[in-house]
Design a protein around this nucleic acid. Structure first.
Length: 419
RNA sequence: GAGCCCAUAGCUCAGUUGGUUAGAGCGCCAGGUUGUGGCCCUGGAGGCCGUGGGUUCAAAUCCCAUUGGGCUCCCCA
């Protein structure tokens, strides 16, 4: 009786015709770029075991501690995946992909879920594309991953982007650095922001991430991870830098860049854009040499990235980049009467079989209304099917753009329409 | 979790110091053209003015609450 109205959940949106074309075009670019870089697609379920995400991403991260859509069902604990790397690592281990030999080059496109407060460039269901190069420890792998990521943006036509680069070191580096940070910030504890004070003991590296006003002057004098890298980590970072320069890939060193997920080691990078507003990261990634082991596999080095598709779309819009427009049908059947409509229905499949995109009117409206609809839908041709035409087996084919008409037999239709 | 802003037709928005039947543009439907789109003209449909309460003779307009949305902090894609 009463009309209940429904809408999407907060932070989740519908993609409608007119907008979806841009997404499809972008996905095509991603797939084609992946093909050229020889990354193969992997699709994992949108739900994972909660424990996998908690362990893989890290209990203390914001993602795990407060942003997961999770529920229990009997003995099982489900979570809508908040990111893509831990699930891919899980799949790598579960299916013994290491046994396939060499290193695995995987990419993915899909939805992810975080229960955050939505704002520009941040949705609760959002979409990422990303890639993982698993089983390669050298700096070349890091640079390959970065090159792949940047190639997508180059193909799309987004050029005003900045690659920020840092190293978070290996465990030994991080322990030394963490201790140095703790020693540095401890005497300043009372001057730190509340959030940073909490992190002093749990994860002092995250203080460097802080955008709190009062933390900025304190951050300036803080120790830099670069000075605490072990010789091995330092060598790896230097090698990445050398290779990036060799590849003419511009980047900026950012000593404060600390990625928010626990599994990162060594190289960390982020791609930022001035066109996004407050959430300025298009994507980011880095090396995660400990994750595979953390989720139950053999120690396996790996490096990857993830990029936000919604944010890429925002950048496209800001830059006026249109990747695709809605495509109209090749042929629109304008019909008079039931017999004509059935004739159209019977004749469309053969044309479609030849690759011609056909549609028709289903409402039996006036010829004028049908022509208007054909125009609105962007049809290249309209064919008029009435009693006279059916009797003569000759039909009027109208070129909508040229506004000229020819009379054709049904057999001639396809040749007239195909380019 | 905190702050700021917004809510009138499908969309974008007007709506004077509270004052009759709430408007425009675009879109939609139809007619002008008994079988022809775009341009033009005419007409029509479509609103419990987000919801609930209050003030008032009178509320889209003022007050309170509530819901929804947007942006921002935190953090991330």
């Amino acid at each position: 009786m009463s009309k209940q109205s429904y809408s999407t959940h907060h932070g989740m949106v519908d993609l409608l015709p007119g907008e979806i074309e841009q997404w499809q075009a972008l996905e095509a670019i991603i797939r084609e770029t992946a093909r050229r870089y020889h990354f193969q697609e992997i699709r994992t379920p949108v739900m994972e075991q909660t424990e996998l995400i908690a362990r893989g991403v890290g209990q203390l991260t914001d993602i795990v501690s407060k942003e997961m859509f999770a529920f229990d069902r009997g003995e099982d604990r489900y979570v809508l995946r908040p990111e893509g790397t831990a699930p891919v690592a899980r799949a790598f281990v579960q299916h013994h992909l290491a046994q396939r030999g060499g290193c695995q080059r995987l990419f993915y496109i899909g939805p992810f879920f975080r229960a955050e407060r939505p704002q520009k460039g941040r949705q609760r269901q959002f979409h990422q594309f990303g890639a993982e190069l698993i089983g390669a420890s050298g700096a070349i792998a890091d640079v390959e991953i970065i090159a792949f990521m940047l190639a997508v943006y180059r193909q799309v036509g987004i050029s005003n982007i900045t690659l920020k680069l840092n190293s978070v070191g290996d465990p030994a580096s991080r322990n030394a650095f963490r201790k140095a940070l703790h020693d540095y910030f401890l005497p300043l504890k009372d001057d730190l922001s509340e959030i940073s004070r909490k992190r002093l003991d749990t994860n002092p590296m995250r203080i460097l991430d802080s955008k709190e006003e009062e933390d900025q002057p304190l951050k300036a004098g803080a120790p830099k991870i670069i000075d605490y890298l072990t010789p091995e980590s330092k060598a790896h970072f230097d090698a990445v830098i050398t290779l990036l320069e060799k590849m003419h890939i511009p980047f900026e060193r950012d000593p404060f860049l600390v990625r928010g997920l626990d599994y990162y080691t060594e190289t960390a990078f982020e791609l930022v854009s001035p066109d996004l507003g407050s959430q300025d990261a298009l994507g980011g990634g880095g090396r995660y040499d400990l994750l595979i082991e953390e989720v139950g596999g053999q120690p396996t080095p790996a490096v990857g990235f993830a990029c936000g598709i919604e944010r890429l779309m925002i950048a496209c819009e800001a830059l006026g980049i249109t990747l695709a427009d809605p495509a109209g049908p090749d042929l629109y059947f304008v019909t008079r009467g039931e017999e004509a409509a059935q004739w159209a229905l019977e004749n469309m499949p053969a044309l479609r079989g030849k690759g011609i995109v056909c549609t028709m009117d289903y409402s039996g409206r006036s010829l004028k209304a049908q022509m208007k609809d054909a125009n609105r839908q962007g049809a290249r041709f309209a064919v008029i099917v009435g009693e006279q035409e059916l009797a003569d087996n000759r039909f009027t084919l109208r070129n909508m753009a040229e506004s000229d008409e020819v009379t054709v037999s049904p057999d001639e239709l396809a040749d007239r329409i195909l380019p």
